[in-house]
Amino acid sequence: MSFDWLSFWEFLPRMLQAALVTIQVSVLAVGFSCLLAPPLTIIRLIAPWPARVVVGVFVEIVRGIPPLVIIAFVYFGLPAIGLMFDGFWTGVVALTIVGVAYAVEIMRSAIESLGRGQREAALALGFPVWRTYLELLFLQALKRTLPPLTNELANVIKASALLSVISVHEITQVGNALIFETFVVAEIMVQMTILYLIIVGALSTLSRKLESRLV
């Protein structure tokens, strides 16, 4: 059995379309995660205790269950309380939940790894607690968070493959469907692999650029 370039080119447009869906879900989920994580991290660290506990419990629960369960929860569970999402937006919401939970944990540990000395020095100078965190600790910790955060967001992108179970036409779903329709396996598998590598690679490159800028 040799590699069939004809089928490779034949199916590429459909796979590229699927990649576009994966990219859209990923960009939205990663974007929302990055937007929501900093304020939630600050809440997790210094808000009055009820808010702190709520965020803490949220993070622990999400980290403790598989992303597939969260997708199922958003898709089948949330309609019970009147929140109905189609497949695409289920993906965005579920992956944002996953991304945010891990990102909050990463940012929290980065800030706490700075040690209490700097925090006390800032407080002793008369910085209010929230400005200590926002203006002195958070920015400093951000650089430390980038490598682990990129890792985790790459996992979020890869978890978008799970959206195939609710028939979102992303790379894995379309690839699998094509394989079952046509029994062209290797060519489509290669396409799926390359597409994921390009998308995750783009995230890593972006993060490295950002990291060198933050120096």
């Binding site: 000395g117 700097q118 006390e120 002793a124 100078l125 008369g126 002195l136 400093q140």
Partner: peptide
């Protein structure tokens, strides 16, 4: 705290 300065054993400068 703005009226009281403090110096720590471990300096605690912002690195």
């Amino acid at each position: 705290r703005r009226r009281v300065g403090m110096v720590f054993q471990q300096f605690n400068l912002f690195p």
